[in-house]
């Protein structure tokens, strides 16, 4: 049996998630024993459109992105959204809160008319997505686990538990107990609590757990001395894209 063929694509993003794949240095040879990589702009020149699984990074922010994304969907048996930008529009969606023209002016100044840009959306607003690897950037082990799951026909891990679970199991000092506001209690885990482990609070890059108690979390952050504006920033840095917007 020939090996499954996988390909990588990107839209509006920093390509840091794809870099995480390349960072799997110790595992790359084992990975290549399982799959053939046929398109990966960050790592190779060849670009073959005959593939089974497409890993797509980045948000959809321009009209011309849509036909390209649809072409990927048609070519692939499975499409996996990788990273916060692709799965939930992530940081890109912050600009949806202001008129596009104003956002362009802030970013490009007097060259703003040279760039096309619209509403930032996750890729599942345009095509059907078969799985998500969350995070900014994605976790390397999570990527490898997802590939393994797909190869044996299992559902990829969805990590629908809070960052606190892995944080406590690592026996980190809870940042909330030492007065540092943290989004860990309502943010999806699977990252092995990498931020709190090194002393920085979780800011929600993997999205919210499906049963996030946002109201109580807001009150909790307020008790930690955050203003409504601060809390709003915490809640929206990665998680501002609302599901309803998908139909907008």
């Amino acid at each position: 049996m020939s090996k499954p063929r996988i390909a990588f694509f990107d839209f509006s993003c920093c390509e840091g998630c794809q870099l995480q794949v390349l960072n799997c240095e110790d595992e790359l040879l084992d990975l290549l024993a399982l799959v053939d990589i046929v398109q990966f702009r960050e790592a190779m020149t060849e670009a073959d459109w005959n593939f089974d699984i497409a890993f797509v990074e980045g948000s959809i922010t321009r009209e011309q992105d849509e036909p390209r994304l649809k072409k990927i969907r048609e070519a692939a048996k499975l499409v996996i959204a990788i990273g916060a930008c692709s799965g939930m529009a992530g940081i890109n969606a912050i600009r949806n809160a202001m008129p596009v023209d104003k956002a362009k002016e802030i970013v490009y100044g007097n060259k703003k008319d040279a760039f096309e840009s619209t509403f930032a959306r996750p890729i599942d607003t345009v095509i059907k997505v078969d799985g998500y690897i969350p995070g900014c950037p994605i976790d390397r082990k999570d990527f490898l686990r997802t590939v393994q799951a797909l190869l044996v026909g299992k559902k990829p891990p969805d990590h629908d538990y809070p960052v606190c679970q892995e944080c406590r199991l690592r026996e980190n000092e809870c940042l909330l107990t030492v007065g540092i506001p943290c989004m860990g209690p309502i943010t999806r885990g699977g990252c092995d609590a990498i931020e709190p482990t090194f002393g920085s609070p979780c800011i929600g890059c993997r999205g919210l757990v499906s049963e996030a108690n946002i109201e109580s979390c807001k009150q909790m952050l307020e008790k930690h001395g955050l203003t409504i504006e601060d809390i709003s920033k915490y809640m929206t840095i990665f998680n501002s894209f609302q599901k309803e917007e998908k139909h907008a």
């Binding site: 809070p162 309502i186 108690n213």
Partner: peptide
């Protein structure tokens, strides 16, 4: 229940 964040810390510690 209204307050609980379901973070699981209570049972993990």
């Amino acid at each position: 229940g209204k307050k609980c964040l379901s973070c699981g810390q209570c049972v993990l510690v």
